[in-house]
Design a protein around this nucleic acid. Sequence first.
DNA 1: GTCGATTTGTTCGTATGTATC
DNA 2: TGATACATACGAACAAATCGA
Lengths: 210, 210
Amino acid sequence: MDKIKLNPVQRLPRTFEQVSKQIVNYLTSEKLSNRSKLPTERTLSTLLGVSRSSLREGLRVLELLGYLDSRQGEGTFVSEPPPFIVPSRVLTQKLDPASLKHYYEISIMCAEQIVMLSLQESIDNNIFKSKSNSPNNFWSEFAYWIESLSSQLQNPYFLSLWQNTYHLLIENNYFLHRDAPVEINTFVESFAEKDESKLKQLLFTLSRIT
Amino acid sequence: MDKIKLNPVQRLPRTFEQVSKQIVNYLTSEKLSNRSKLPTERTLSTLLGVSRSSLREGLRVLELLGYLDSRQGEGTFVSEPPPFIVPSRVLTQKLDPASLKHYYEISIMCAEQIVMLSLQESIDNNIFKSKSNSPNNFWSEFAYWIESLSSQLQNPYFLSLWQNTYHLLIENNYFLHRDAPVEINTFVESFAEKDESKLKQLLFTLSRIT
DNA sequence: GTCGATTTGTTCGTATGTATC
DNA sequence: TGATACATACGAACAAATCGA
């Protein structure tokens, strides 16, 4: 008996998948900048040789992933996709406590990284001033601080991850009954003094909040 | 002149958006487990009072986000959405060097977190054995080690983030001409000795690879 | 301020491909 | 082999939003 070489069968990608890939290739190859207008759905469907229904399914995918933005009566426009997407946020769906805890730990990891990188790149944070005068709301102040730091960072993906997870927690009222046993000024001052170990200790206490 | 309060105009969500949200609510409320079968497209469209085209656009979104899985001739099935999605990976699209560097830094952050958490949770890693006998390929060994660690971790989201970024880098040949100046055994031994500072120093050298 | 052209949003009917029994 | 159930795909038509003459 001969040896039979078995390869996994290749299925043709569905139409909408081919459509979305082709359009993204078109976007990148033509170097279409932000907000530039795409051809109409009818034009695209004839160009690609597919029906408008299938083309639209492809456009939906790209819109969801942040590559496009369609507006009725106007047209379809190029957009900048984010580096990360959290499914439940796209659908504004509430999450269970376990998942929230997992996202919380991710957000703290990002915060720590942002703070430490800011120290390394010796970012000037003297401009920072507490936004609100309500000293109770630690978390919004903390978020404001983290974003003011990361906006000066070279790598914008840490900010993206932070924002995704932080806003997800906000939307799920995660911080409603979780006040942190620290004040924002403690962070800001430790940062000004470049006190790395103190900052790490503070962030560790945050990570320990249940 | 009176003060005018300007609120952003509220648009009715498009049909496919309402469809995807309703279906997700249906999934969670009915506690439909993995792989259970949904009603047919025709049934769903009549139940929701929308056309099949609009329903399908909603299903596409859910399929892309990982909530569903449609197979021609069989049906549509429930699936488990991942905590994070990287747009360019969904479209198997190649990325520019700058974006890759950003993702690389994210992946290293995850790796460090996974290692440190594994130390804290005193995970037993004695079972680990190098997979291949080619000592050259540091990165695949490293990835194997990270995954063997994080599979025992309480929070699976670190693993998800790691895998997303690592596989994205692989798919873009990021490691092709980037050999690390360390060996995997150095990591494994330092971990066995619970040498935290040594591990941090090793991970720092990884983060410094350009 | 209205009208008409343009463009996306939505629907319906129909045909085809594919898996299961 | 055939029948059934299902997703996939197409095209034509109409609705609604936007913009400019």
